[in-house]
Simulated assay, not measured.
Amino acid sequence: MMRVWFRRGVVAGALSVAAAVLTMAAGDLWVRAEARGHVHTVAAAPAAPVALVLGAKVYPDGRPSPFLAARLEIARQLLRAGKVRAILVSGDHMDWGYNEPGAMFQWLVDRGVPSQRIVLDHAGFDTYDSCARARKVFGVSAAIVVTQSYHIDRAVALCRRLGVDASGVGDDTVRIYREPWRNSVLRERGAVVKALADVLSGRDPVFLGPREPGIEAALNTG
């Protein structure tokens, strides 16, 4: 009897692993197909009204991590090149002791970006929420999404599926941080599965909130 249960357990485990692998493969195929033809360099990126910069780790002293600083530098370059006219920084501000959008805003202002051109989204708790809120709360219909290259296909795919005509620019400069980069690439496999589940569920962001006029004001800044 024990052998029968053992064999059943082995079969069930093997089926679960196979299902997980197939789901990851399906998610990977989906994001690649959605993003194909929409990922560019800064120089080749098509113009859009807004750069959407996705949040990442901020240190306790308020400094953006190298991964986040690299994203912000791309957004700064896009604005300077006239590719975008406003920057939407979207990140985690779940509690007052941790403020990704605030740190992103300060980094850009310290490097010469006019504060009137920057809009803060304090409830971009993940990529799906950032894209959904860009469309539903800030009224963004077209954007250049900025993140790391391992993340850019998923970011573009989600934004496009959520109603934003998105292209993307991905950063590769932080590959020099080999272990964090490798860990992020591995985590991305699971994140793709979550993205697929989010799209299929059609869930609202964690915090939807009322419509905010910040983007219109930033775009109309002289």
Rank of each mutant, 00 (worst) to 15 (best):
F6R: 15
R8C: 12
V10R: 03
V10L: 15
S16H: 02
V17R: 03
T23E: 06
A25R: 14
E34C: 09
E34F: 07
A35D: 01
R36W: 09
V39M: 07
A45C: 02
V50Y: 00
A56Y: 00
K57R: 12
P60K: 07
R63M: 10
P64M: 07
S65R: 05
A70L: 10
A70H: 13
A70T: 09
A75N: 06
Q77T: 07
Q77E: 15
R80H: 14
K83M: 07
R85P: 09
G91P: 05
H93W: 00
G97F: 11
G97M: 06
N99Y: 10
F105N: 12
F105K: 12
F105T: 10
W107K: 01
R111C: 05
G112M: 04
V113K: 01
S115Q: 12
I118L: 14
A123Q: 13
G124K: 01
R135S: 09
F138M: 01
A142P: 03
A143V: 05
I144S: 08
V146T: 02
Q148L: 10
I152M: 11
I152G: 05
I152P: 00
D153F: 06
C159I: 06
R160S: 09
S167Y: 01
G168Q: 04
G168N: 05
G168I: 01
D172P: 03
R178G: 04
E179G: 02
W181L: 11
V185C: 06
R187K: 14
R187L: 11
G190M: 02
L196Q: 08
V199Q: 11
L200D: 00
G202W: 03
D204M: 12
F207M: 03
G209W: 06
E212Q: 15
P213G: 08
L219N: 01
L219V: 04
T221Y: 12
G222C: 14
